[in-house]
Simulated assay, not measured.
Amino acid sequence: MSKFAFRRELRLLTPEHYRYVFQQAHRAGSPHLTILARNNDLGHPRLGLAVPKKQIKTAVDRNRFKRLVRESFRLRQDTLPAKDFVVIAKKSANELSNEELNKVLHKLWHRLSRPSRG
């Protein structure tokens, strides 16, 4: 069970971590969210979230979005490459059901996991 934990070392914690990803990122997007990815030398993936109040208005909805993204990442962390990922919410992300959001995330994780994505 601890294999699927979302430990501190699996998170982007500082502004420098986010800046590193934003500088030269590969992106995979949908109408509802965008995931930026950049290789890291750590041997494991890390996750960061950007959920602006301007895009998702209420704290309840922002927290739901973040919870679902973290859960999706947590369950797939052993299959993801050693990259830093930043998930950016768009306005329409709030309109998705939990199941729809999971399907979108699964598709984007898969797209960014392909070796050709550098």
Rank of each mutant, 00 (worst) to 15 (best):
K83W: 03
R74E: 05
N102W: 01
E16A: 11
Y18F: 13
L49R: 03
L80I: 07
P15D: 09
L112M: 04
R76L: 01
E99Y: 07
G48Q: 05
V86K: 13
S92I: 04
L105N: 13
M1G: 15
T34Y: 00
L12I: 09
L112P: 13
K103A: 06
Q24G: 15
N39E: 08
L75N: 07
L36G: 13
L33Q: 12
D41Y: 07
R38A: 06
P115N: 14
A37W: 05
N39A: 03
K66P: 08
N98G: 15
K53H: 12
S2R: 14
A50F: 02
H26C: 01
K83R: 11
R38D: 02
F22L: 11
R64V: 05
R7T: 15
V86N: 13
V69Q: 06
P31G: 10
N94G: 13
Q23W: 10
R70L: 03
S72E: 10
Y20N: 12
D78S: 04
G43T: 14
A59H: 10
I56K: 00
A50I: 14
S92N: 10
R38T: 15
P115G: 12
K91G: 09
I88L: 04
L108R: 12
R64C: 02
S116K: 08
E95G: 11
S113R: 04
R76A: 08
F85L: 12
R70H: 04
H17T: 14
V51I: 11
N39H: 04
R62Y: 05
L112E: 05
H26N: 05
V104I: 09
K90V: 05
L13A: 10
H44F: 05
F73E: 02
L12A: 06
H110V: 08
H106C: 08
N98D: 15
A82N: 14
V86L: 08
W109Q: 12
S113D: 00
L105I: 09
D61I: 02
H26T: 13
